[in-house]
Simulated assay, not measured.
Amino acid sequence: MSTHLTVEHFGQTLWLMPDRAVYWPAQRALLVADVHIGKAASYRALHQPVPRGTTDATLQRLDALLTGCDCEQLIILGDFLHARTARAPATLARLQAWRARHAHVRMVLLRGNHDRHAGDPPTQLGIEVRDQPWVLGPFALQHEPDVHQDYPVLAGHVHPVFVLRGRGRQRLRLSCFVLGEQVSLLPAFGEFTGGWNIEPTPGNRIYLAAADQVWAVQD
């Protein structure tokens, strides 16, 4: 497995994973956001030329993380299914096979905006579905990055990315984690997702997720 970066956040040790996930050792939990299963198929249904194989690639990455980390829980911070078209029989068969490989893992989905349109995952997948926020340890786990009046928030939804600028017009756009004093953001886990540019602000720590490592952005 690629090298993770260990950080301390509100008294908790978190592993920021290059594969755009967070492992929380104290809870033996893997956290991901914005998986968007079936997004490419949804675009193809609209006759848009988009890549194939994104669902398989996403599930393979989840396989590796769930196997490589000591996981009792997978917590999805919203947008597991992209749309109702993700319920195509072939997609559901892939999801069922993936779920069977991790039958011992508790899986919890906090409904996101796409989940509300796509509907809850089929019951045979054995994924517990909750409305946000879900308070676990010192955190409020949510999809939308809204401030909670009592707890620091871990959220998704905005697909944060950071642009590294080099000489001339050189630019590299990378997914990132943002750890803030009130709200922290996970990058989008899915293969076929866009991104929202993040700039450093006081009180926020930005960590870039590359192919095999995570590193901090220095102001």
Rank of each mutant, 00 (worst) to 15 (best):
H47Y: 10
R99Y: 07
L95A: 10
A90R: 13
H9P: 03
G112H: 10
P121R: 05
R61Q: 11
T6G: 12
L31R: 00
R101P: 08
H148Q: 09
Q142N: 04
R130G: 01
A216S: 09
I206M: 12
A216G: 02
L92Y: 01
C71F: 13
Q96F: 01
I206V: 15
V7E: 13
A45H: 12
R28M: 14
P200M: 11
T13Y: 10
L164P: 02
G180S: 07
L154W: 03
R167V: 13
P160V: 10
L81P: 01
R116Y: 15
L59I: 07
N204L: 07
Q182P: 00
F177H: 11
S42K: 06
C71I: 12
R171M: 12
E191C: 00
A26V: 08
A209V: 08
W196R: 09
L125M: 07
L125N: 03
V105P: 01
Q73I: 00
A211P: 00
V50H: 11
V153E: 06
A83K: 04
D70R: 07
V135S: 07
V163G: 07
R44L: 04
H47T: 08
H82A: 13
L31I: 05
D146E: 15
V153I: 10
V214A: 02
V147Y: 02
L109C: 13
R20Q: 06
G112Y: 11
D146W: 15
P138W: 03
F189A: 05
N197V: 15
A209W: 09
Q182A: 12
A140S: 14
H4R: 04
G126C: 10
A57T: 12
L62M: 15
D34A: 08
P18F: 00
T85C: 00
G166R: 04
H82N: 10
W98A: 05
G11N: 12
H104L: 13
R130E: 02
V129G: 00
T54S: 12
L30D: 02
P145M: 05
Q96M: 07
D219N: 10
G137L: 01
R116A: 15
D70Q: 12
T3W: 07
A140H: 10
N113Q: 06
A93K: 14
T13C: 14
L185D: 02
D150C: 11
V163I: 15
G168M: 13
H104K: 14
F192D: 01
H9F: 11
L5I: 02
G203K: 06
Y23D: 11
W24Y: 09
R99W: 03
Q12K: 13
P200N: 12
S42T: 15
L136T: 06
L66P: 09
V105A: 02
A211G: 01
A26M: 04
A97C: 08
W134E: 08
R130Y: 00
A88I: 03
L74Q: 08
M1V: 04
L92W: 00
L81R: 04
D70G: 03
D34Q: 09
L77M: 10
A88L: 12
V50C: 14
C176N: 05
P51I: 05
R111P: 03
P18W: 02
Q48F: 11
Q73L: 03
F162V: 03
R173L: 13
T54W: 05
Y207M: 02
S184R: 01
A140P: 12
Y43N: 06
